[in-house]
Design a protein around this nucleic acid. Sequence first.
RNA 1: GCGCCCAUAGCUCAGCUGGAUAGAGCAACGGCCUUCUAAGCCGUAGGUCAUACGUUCGAAUCGUAUUGGGCGCGCCA
Length: 582
Amino acid sequence: MKDQLKDLLIKCIKELISKGILNEMPSRVRIDHTKDKSHGEYATNIALMLSKQAKKSPTELAKIIIDQLEDTSFIKKIEVAGPGFINFFISEESSTSIVNDILDQGSLYGRSKIGQGQKVLLEYVSANPTGPLHVGHGRGAAYGATLSNLLRSVGFKVDNEYYVNDAGRQMDILTVSIYLRYLTHCGENLRFPDNGYQGQYINDIAQVIYENSGHEFFQNSDLLFESVSKDGLEGGDKEIHIDQLIEQSKSILGESFKVIFKVGIESILSGIKNDLAEFGVVFEKWFSEQSLIDNGHSELCISKLKDSKNLYKKDGALWFKTTKFGDEKDRVVVRENGNHTYFASDIAYHNEKLDRGYDKIINVWGADHHGYIPRVKASIDALGHNSNKLEILLVQFANLYRGGSKVQMSTRSGSFVTLEDLRMEVGNDAARFFYILRKSEQHMDFDLDLAKSKTNENPVYYIQYAHARICSVFRQANEKELELDKSQANLSLLTEDIEKSILRELSRYKSVLESSAVQYEPHQLAYYLKDLATHFHSYYNACKFIVDDKELTQARLSLIHATRQILINGLSILGVSAPESM
RNA sequence: GCGCCCAUAGCUCAGCUGGAUAGAGCAACGGCCUUCUAAGCCGUAGGUCAUACGUUCGAAUCGUAUUGGGCGCGCCA
C-alpha cells in the first residue's frame, strides 16, 4: 500500500517535471504513516520540500500535485493540511485487506527482499575464552542475534561468526592458572599468582583433570616456582612473576602444557557455546585466531604490508604506519621480543573475512573498543580491500541494578554476574528483550527486579500476555465449536475506532521491520510490538469478540488472529517465545 | 589534553534520520472484574527537549560554543 502510493507520487512528480512545473526529482520521496488518524493513514511532505524549486507556496504546490495524481480505487480522500502536507485516506476495503494478507502469509508475513540477497558476515560476542560469559557480553549477544534475524527477514544472507582469541599470552596465563589449581588438587601447597584467573570455574576444570588423570601431570611445585621472582602483592612485579611462571611451566611440562591448555580452552568454549545456544544465539562459525598463525595467514599479511612499504622498525619493534590511513598514531604489529600483537592477528582476520567475498562485514563491539576502529580500517585499506565494506557497531555497557543499587563487577577477581546467572534469574525471554530494548549506543541500566516483575512495568510479559489472551479467546471459541473461517468474515464490519487503530498498527509492521533492520535498531521492533499489544489490550477490554452476529465474530476473530500472527513473527525475530497461556 | 558516545516528565526511556498540539511505562491521584486470563483497561496530573547562538517556511532532531556524565588514548587482549 505504502509502496503503491510512493510509486504513484513518483510518477506524478515526473509528470510535473515534464510539464516544467518542477525541475528535478528530490533525493528522497517519502510517504509516512501518520501519527494522528485525523491526518489519514499516510502523509507526505513532498510539497514542502519542493515548494522552493517550484517557486510556489507549499499548499499551492500540494494542490497541483493532487490534481496530477492518477485516480485510484484504494484512495478514499486526499487533502492538503497544515503547512502543506498531503494526507491520504485509504478506503475501508483496502485498509482491511491487511488482515487477509497476514492470514494468508502467516509466519512469512513481513519478509521482504530489500537486502537483495547480499552476503553479510556478522561478528559479535567474540569474548575471550578465558572464562564464562558475563552480563556485559549478554548485550552484544542479544543485539547481534536479533540483528541477524532482522537482516535475514529483509532479505540479507547472514553468517554469524564468533572470533575466538585462542592465541597469545592470556592463553598461557589461563593454562598456568588451571595447572596450579590442579596441583592444589594433587595436594600441593602453593601461592596462586595475583595475575592468574581467580574464578571458581578454573578450579572446576582443574578438578575434572585431576579426577580423570590423577597425578599424571604432577610436578613438584617448588620446582615450578624455583627462581621465579616475587609476585605483586609480595612487593615484586606481578607481570614478570606470571611470565616467569609461564616459561618455567612450559619447559618443565613440555607436551603436557599443551594438553592442559587444550582441556582448559575446550571446556571454557563448550561452556560458552552452551550458554549462547540456550540463549538462542547460534553461530555458523567459530573462527580461531590461532588458525591464522598456524596457516601462515598472519605472517603473509605482515609481509604484504612490508612489501607495500607500510611497515618500519623502531625501538626493535615492527610498526604499521596506520597514520597514513587516518589513525592518530602508528601501531606495533611485531613486538621487540618477536611476538605478534593482537592487532597483527586482527589484520589477518579482517583481511581473511574480506577475501571470503562478503558484500558487507559487520562487527558488533563493546564501546570501549572504539579507539580500535581506525587501525583496523587502516589495515583493510593498506591490504587493498575497501574499508567501507566494514561497519562497526558499538554497543555501550550495561550496568546491572538490584534493589535500586548498582551491582559491582570485577572480572579479574572472578566476582561477576555470569550470563547464565542472569538467564536463570530473569529467564531467557526477559533477558533477550531487555537487552535490545535500549538503543545500542545508549548506556543501559539493567534492572533485575524489573526484568523479573510480572506487571505492566515489564514489557515482555505485557506483549506475551496479549498473545496468550488471543490464544485463550480461540480456546473459548473452540469450546463453542467455533472455528476461524475467514471466508465468512465480513471485514467491513470492523468499524470501531479501536479496530481501525489496530488495522493501522498492523499495516505499519512491514515498514517497522525494514527500518529496524536497515538502521540496525532492534529496539524499534520491540517498541512496535509493545504498541501493538497496547492496542490489543484496549480492544480486549472494549469489545467482545465472540458475539451473536456470525459475520462480525468471524471478522473480529480474523483481526485478532492477524494480530497474534504479527506478535509471533515479531517476537520470534527478537528471540522471545510466545506462550499460549500464562 | 585529544577522540568517540550521551543529556527529553520526579524515575527508566521512545520520538520513524528536519515536519502538524513532544509520547510510553513506573511513581502520584480517581475509576473498571456475575461477561473471551485484572500479568489487563479507562481517566487526571506532570516538560524552557542541559544552556546559548546559528542554518530555514519549520529544530528535540542539523552546525558551532559552553556545561555535565560515560568510555578510550600500551610493544594488554
